[in-house]
Amino acid sequence: MRVAGIKARWVVRVALFAIWLGPLLGLLCTPRSSNTDSFVYWQLRVPRVTTGLLVGASLGLAGAVTQALFRNPLATPSTTGTLAGATLGALLALVWGAGAASLGLPAIALSAFVGALLTSAIVLGAAASGRLRTQDILLIGIAVTLAASSAATVLEDIADTPALVAASRWSLGHLSQVGYGQIRIAGPILAVCWLILLSQARALQILVLGEDVAHSRGLNVRKARVISLSVCSLAVAVAVAWCGPIAFVGLIVPALVRLAFGANQRVVLPGSLVTGAALLTLCDALGQLISTRHEVPVGVVTAALGAPALVALIVLRNNS
């Protein structure tokens, strides 16, 4: 038993080490153009890898915080309504024919951002009331997700074909079409979000032991929930508005880190930040390497790798 446990831990550590090399792959090997002059390098590869790092780090960290907050390995930004709200927002923008730039951001991104914040606000309101148990808040998140998804389905039904194509392209998740302009806007916002979330490690560490116990040990549970959940939603909203709802990163990254390095939040949070950044860049590089003619969207790669990885992880964990 113990031998198997240590083995599983080392298997995951080696896998994590491989993932951490992802950004290098993205910088060195992605084609798109056979010439590797400095224009391609600085105007295509570097911003794209930077985007992958920023978005991946945010999704990985948000996943870890959400899991700790809800004391549930299945809790991710997908189950707290954030991603569904972003999707609904993006669809709304597409269906109303918006494509024009406003406030320097494309309308789709802005609308997705607003949608993500609105649905998160419902869940956040439930958390802030202070009367609901953790599991109830998670259920409300799932209800919001379902409601937003069905609203999105109605929109898809009334949308015309070009809007639908654009919507489906957005919803696959991709890191292309990002330049330094967007990085300059989103980068600082995300960095501040990370710092705030990382500073919550101590609070989350006692929150995972149970909210009543956390309260009795001096934690203002309601305040910790509101800070973590709102900053998490903000980070995910920015990331998703930018690149589409990229699934599985928030789910698989914290699970990997926990299996490799234990459940201590002071390790899980920074570990998920780093691993999320590396994993998304790696998946994006793979998406470009799989086919040089038609690149595979990164969201498809994360889902294609994430699903089997998750199953493998569960098997590994049960063996240890």
């Binding site: 116990v213 309260h215 009795s216 040990r217 001096g218 934690l219 203002n220 549970v221």
Partner: peptide, 10 residues
């Protein structure tokens, strides 16, 4: 909660 945690543990 912080003040209370100094007075009572559970």
């Amino acid at each position: 909660p912080l003040e209370r945690a100094a007075k009572v543990a559970w």
